[in-house]
Design a protein around this nucleic acid. Structure first.
Lengths: 158, 158
DNA sequence: ACACTTATGTAGCCTTGGCTACATACTACC
DNA sequence: GGTAGTATGTAGCCAAGGCTACATAAGTGT
């Protein structure tokens, strides 16, 4: 069966004629969504790493309740996520002690923060109010690829 | 206890001195993350609605397997998500028949597609290669607020 | 008509990331 | 040193969004 007819044989609908909107290639589109999903999976880890790093830098200690409060979640949720960070070798802690980052975790945090800053700056540069930029960047940053990030930096330098 | 000391009484660490990086306000930060989480919850629905709308427009029919293939997921996953769309009043279908959108679903799809387009255009405008822009936009678009979107449009018009 | 292929739907499992409720461990203070 | 208060941790629940395996339905072709 010749690929083009194969898609629409069911119910005898005629093969798609030319002149229609033309969707992107099927597998390419699938890859886009796949990439977005994997970015989403990393997002939580990045948020935690970045926040823990911030707390350590500015206050000296990153405690589960502080983390939970800042992320707007309950403390058990925070503890569970921290456990995942530990599983993935990004953080470490002993019972009833504050959390700290491993080298890998620190590196992740640094990259996340750098990206965050660039994204906010870009948004502001194209006319988004600062407060709104901070809000929107929180979700967007995890989906910005290195290539796009480099483009952002270049744009900001002008 | 005077709020400022309260945060750091544990283990006798002295209250935070001035001159440190200064984190954003606690509750404001929590709201940022909360907003990002709720955007994420909408993301799947938007992706499905937009895709279904695309399929209906360009091919005449939106069938679960096509949807699954284009999203890069298994067909049971797609069917489950479609069930959620139906639950939320965005889509409808009968057994063994293609999916279609309700008025609400169509409206959501239209908004999602418009936003998608603006985001891609903005990325391209600031120097991101087209292919990369398409990839990154897929994840970013769900986090762009109306205010930012308006700013993007204004920027593109110049 | 019967067989074959593909599409659709169901069942059941996993992980993530939310939550509440409860138990335990600190710390501070009198 | 005991008590109050806060932090920490555990258990168990839920929904979302992945998956595989299986069963049924619908077209296709000989």
């Amino acid at each position: 069966m010749s690929a083009n007819e194969a898609k629409s044989t069911r119910k005898g609908r005629p093969a798609e004629t030319i002149g229609e909107p033309a969707l992107p290639d099927e597998t390419e589109q699938a890859q886009r969504f796949e990439k977005a999903r994997s970015a989403q999976a990393r997002a939580v880890l990045e948020d935690y790493a970045e926040l823990i790093d911030d707390l350590l830098t500015s206050g000296g200690e990153a405690r589960p309740t502080d983390i939970a409060r800042r992320l707007g979640v309950s403390h058990p949720t925070a503890i569970k996520s921290i456990a995942r960070l530990k599983r993935e070798g990004l953080a470490a802690s002993e019972v009833n002690r504050g959390v700290f980052l491993t080298a890998a975790g620190h590196e992740l945090a640094a990259r996340a923060r750098a990206r965050h800053r660039v994204v906010v700056d870009l948004l502001v540069a194209v006319g988004v109010p600062r407060a709104c930029a901070e809000l929107d960047a929180e979700g967007m940053e995890h989906h910005v690829s290195d290539i796009a990030l480099a483009a952002f930096s270049r744009f900001l330098k002008r």
